[in-house]
Design a protein around this nucleic acid. Structure first.
Lengths: 162, 162
DNA sequence: CGTGAAAAGGTTTATTC
DNA sequence: GAATAAACCTTTTCACG
């Protein structure tokens, strides 16, 4: 069975210039090609060709804008530790679908160890969290839930350290 | 003492059109003004004026690009639960500065309750996590640390549900 | 593989209704 | 407020060294 380079392939070989371009794009994706080229000591066309390749390879994904949650009234952020008794495929499918469908769940990870899942949930206030929580446990059976309330966001970045 | 509208002010009043614009920018910040205007049923000029205001108000922050961590060799993601015995201002300053200085710490929150802090840390592998952990505890005294290893990223988004 | 120019399209400002 | 238009940049393609 043959295998072509698919976008899902893990790890891509990058040189120093690719890394510089990625770092610049992470820092400020609104920069022009000339600006990026200037900063990293290259020029327009090579930068453009590399960006195109990095996009095709799936290294560069969504281009987005970071909004200020508090200015938009999302005043509460919870980390939710979930333990479950159920480990059947069917239950898991239902649980994952529920998480993906709920827009207040910004992150969800399946974990190794005692705790099965961790969620990061952003909502307007504690009441909105409770509504989310009640809705979730009514959809899927969960053994144990611990909610950790964030008092202060010390740091938050999407920038990987290249 | 008078008070001017500063960028740090909490909560901003937005109408339905502002929200639609923000939703489009979150979804895809590379769209042209015409594209956004078309999708939300408006036109260039009003969309442009609103985006400018939202930027000035600090609602719209960094424009960035989401990179694929695995394609870049960041194969390990940990959530780190930190308990401390120290609660003096000086200790806290040192701890926060350490977290902010370490680029592998993508998120850090101060929590209410038993656990004092939660961190999200992205590194190449378990060994790199250990190096990070050793460096951190050598910089600041920490009472208790639990690392939760992510086995699977079920969901990860920066998009707030507008 | 980089350079530079040309074509197409986007942003930003100013003016008008 | 919104529409239009003009000036100015940027992106994208392409032909050439």
């Amino acid at each position: 069975m043959s295998q072509i380079d698919a976008p899902e392939d893990k790890a891509v070989r990058l040189d120093a210039m690719d890394r510089k371009i990625l770092a610049e794009l992470q820092r400020d994706a609104s920069q022009s090609l000339d600006e990026i080229a200037g900063r990293i000591g290259s020029s327009k066309t090579p930068v453009w060709n590399r960006i195109r390749k990095l996009r095709e390879a799936g290294v560069i994904g969504q281009q987005t804008v970071i909004l200020d949650p508090e200015k938009l009234g999302f005043d509460a952020c919870f980390f939710v530790l979930v333990r479950t008794s159920e480990h059947e495929a069917e239950w898991q499918q239902k649980f994952l679908a529920a998480l993906r469908a709920r827009p207040e769940v910004l992150e969800a990870h399946r974990l190794a160890g005692e705790i099965d899942y961790i969620l990061k949930v952003r909502v307007a206030n504690a009441r909105a969290y409770d509504a989310f929580y009640q809705a979730l446990i009514s959809e899927v059976k969960i053994f144990n839930v611990t909610a950790l309330l964030s008092m202060e966001e010390i740091k938050s970045t999407t920038m990987l350290p290249l």
